[in-house]
Every structure is written in structure tokens, then in C-alpha cells.
Amino acid sequence: MAQAPEPAVIRADHLDLTFQTDDGPVHALRDVTLDIPNGAFVSFIGPSGCGKTTLLRCIAALETPTGGSLTVNGMTADEARRARAYGYVFQAAGLYPWRTIGGNIRLPLEIMGFSKAEQRERVARVLDLVELSQFEKKFPWQLSGGMQQRASIARALAFDADILLMDEPFGALDEIVRDRLNEELLRLWDKTNKTIAFVTHSIPEAVYLSTHIVVMSPRPGRITDVIESPLPKERPLDIRDTPQFIEIAHRVREGLRAGYEE
């Protein structure tokens, strides 16, 4: 892909996942083959039911595929989970109401056995990264939704996993906040050199953020197109008005439409 010599961090090969329900089997994923290279920012986009979240959950070993193979950092997904290879950001911030913002970010560090000094240092660093430094002692309810989501990203970054998995993290936020967070996320990605897998249902968001856009379609959940973005790494918000951007967005839309019409 983009950087040919880079080994794939996440490699899915003919991945299948079928849920058995009372109404018969549901093919959440069928024959998904995908390589995510190191340092890539990959967006999964598609209508609901296309399996984009399911695929992300498979990578996180929160779901178990029923067929095919999936490796993360060269290990099985579950081994990678045990090795704490990724940070996961959910659609809702899901901060613990009984912990302060600092306490919430410290949670994974406590569980993973970092020393007290290291915990302090890391919490300060990631809070600075998401620009919430002066909110360390505040409780979640004292913060707005966007700030809470930034705190949850800081929580996922705190233990320095190489992979960041994000499941529609900005889906519940308004457009203006979302734009700002998108910009911040790109800056973060640039600073930390992480591999990011990002689920969204917003075309502009996917095009703006990604190096690779994976277009998916439902019934059965599958990949219909993988678009490598020619956009430069430096992306001001107004890049969205350039013809290049609009052209990629158009291709994504076509891909989504094709998935529907089949």
C-alpha cells in the first residue's frame, strides 16, 4: 500500500463472522480481506449494518470471527488484546462518573501496573495532548460532551499502545465540535505515529482524516472499495473545499451507492 516496505500491522484474510439468531444466521462480515500498514489512518465507512463496527470489534478481540484469519501485530487478535496492543475509543466517552478526569485516564495505567510516578507523568502528558490539562481534578459531569470524548481519547492514549481503534467517537457530537476534534485528532496522529482504525458514517470526516478509506456495504457485511487518499499529510480544515477532496468524497459516495444497489 502507501509505504510499500512497511509491514501490515493489522491483516485480515478472508474474514467471516456469522451470528446465529432466532431468525437464522446473520452474515455480519463475509470474506473481508484487508491489510492496514503501520502508521496508516484507516476509516471504515458504510451504512449501519455493514459490519464496520463488528470488524473493529474483531480487531479488538471483542468479537470472535467464525472464519478466516486475523492478525494484529503478527499475533492473533486475542493475543494482541492480552498484550494490550491497542487503545479503544467507544462511541460514548464512558468515563467513570466516580473518577475525576485524571482518575479516569489513570484507570488503564493502574490496571496495567504502572508506577505512581509514571502514572502522574503519563496522565499529565496525555491531558496536555488533548488540551485538558486544567481539568484533571474535574468530574466528568462538569465537562461538555466534546471534552469528555477528548478525555476518553486521552485515556486510550495513556498506555502508549501502537494502535488506536475508534468506533464512531464523534458520532454523538455536533458538527462544529466534531470539526475541531477531527483537526486535533490529525495533529495527535501526526505527533504519535500511531496506526488508527476509525469507524464513521460521515463521508467528509472519513475523507478528511484518512490515508485509506474502506467503503463497506451491508447484507452481508463486506468491503466494496478501498481508496488510498492522495491528500497531503498536512490538512487544514479548508482542504475540504479543494477539487481533490471533493473528488475523493464523490468516489466514496459512489462506492456506498453501489453497495446499496446490489
Partner: peptide, 16 residues
């Protein structure tokens, strides 16, 4: 479920 999933991503044991 989300809170429990989060703990799973940390590979946290049941006691934690």
C-alpha cells in the same frame, strides 16, 4: 456492555 468491553480491552482480571 461498553464499560465491560473497556475493561476487556485492558485485559483486566475479574477481581480488578
Amino acid at each position: 456492555a461498553m464499560q465491560m468491553d473497556l475493561m476487556r480491552t485492558y485485559n483486566a482480571p475479574a477481581s480488578t
